[in-house]
């Protein structure tokens, strides 16, 4: 069995079979991270270039650990050290990266579509580790795994995604993937952060988060970026937190077995109250653990992919 795709650029490209294979492989690889020797030799001698042209700690570390647990050599190219700032065009960069014969490129970029561009230019598989406001497919896959492990199913679940939908690549990947797997997805947030045309994905939109919370099986909170305040998307963090934050008060209306996800890093007290982020419903740390397993699975599956 192998994936139907050579690159992981958008969750749109993944079939349900691909998702099943990725999750099964990830679940069977979880055990490796629990051993005292957390390493298997399968990707020995493979080189994985982690090209993070935008600051990231969590995702980059997660990929690096995943690569190392499979014995691959993970090499970091961060934007500071790369030539992107020196006027090298992206295609030049791609050709230069390719000349180092990597087996997989993991790319994060502040501009949407850059992983697509690189995938067309290089010969090896490319994994999109987050591009602009477009997608973050590995995050959606790890969210899927996190939900599946607790809820045992996706189809029929009601998943509420709350917050800055407009700027969130996590939201877009999750909307597409969860809908594909049969979940009901609702969006909630201030109208200034709900993008035009999002209704094409078949998701109802609410401006009052209390309207979605009572029926949600899963609540996915999105990170609110402070610079959006200056850009007049909302008046103040205080007001945002009051109307769109998840706290004890709003959680009163939630289902007893609701689970809460957040892609991190959490702005405690802004989109989510600390006691909720650390509370019994929170799966935020499970997401981090599952992230390593999902990325191990993807690296394994893509390294074996035929050209």
């Amino acid at each position: 069995m192998s994936l139907s795709v050579r690159h992981i650029l958008s969750v749109n490209d993944l079939t349900k079979k691909d998702c099943a294979l990725i999750l099964k492989t990830a679940q069977n690889m979880e055990e490796i991270s629990e051993r005292s020797v957390k390493k298997v030799p399968i990707l020995r001698g493979k080189t994985i270039l982690l090209c993070f042209f935008e600051p990231s700690t969590r995702t980059r570390t997660s990929f690096e650990i995943a690569a190392k647990r499979l014995s691959a050599d993970a090499v970091n190219i961060s934007s500071v050290g790369s030539s992107l700032s020196k006027g090298e065009t992206l295609l030049d960069t791609a050709k230069n990266l390719e000349a180092m014969n990597p087996d997989i490129l993991v790319v994060r970029h502040a501009q949407s579509g850059i992983p697509h561009l690189l995938a067309q230019a290089v010969d090896c598989p490319v994994i999109n580790a987050g591009d602009g406001m477009h997608e973050h497919p590995t995050q959606a896959l790890l969210d899927l795994m996190t939900i599946l492990k607790v809820k045992k199913r996706i189809a029929g679940l009601h998943i509420a995604i709350i917050g800055d939908i407009l700027h969130s690549r996590v939201a877009l990947s999750n909307i597409i993937l969860l809908k594909k797997m049969g979940a009901k997805v609702s969006l909630a947030g201030p109208a200034s952060m709900i993008p035009l045309g999002i209704e094409q994905f078949g998701v109802p939109i609410f401006y009052d988060i209390r309207k979605v919370i009572p029926s949600a099986d899963v609540i996915m909170m999105l990170r609110i970026q402070r610079e959006r305040e200056a850009d007049s998307f909302f008046p103040s963090l205080r007001e945002y937190s009051r109307f769109f934050g998840l706290n004890k008060e709003t959680m009163k209306h939630a289902k007893k077995d609701v689970v809460i996800l957040h892609p991190g890093p959490v702005n405690r007290g802004v989109e989510i109250a600390p006691e909720i982020a650390d509370g019994e419903h929170s799966l935020i740390l499970d997401q981090v653990t599952n992230g390593v397993a999902v990325r191990m699975a993807l690296l394994y599956l893509l390294c074996g992919a035929k050209k």
Binding site: H134, L172, Q200
Partner: peptide, 15 residues
């Protein structure tokens, strides 16, 4: 153009 395609591509739109 701001609309379905800009949202699907995750790029800022021009209304």
């Amino acid at each position: 153009h701001e609309g379905k395609v800009s949202t699907a591509l995750g790029v800022a739109g021009i209304p």
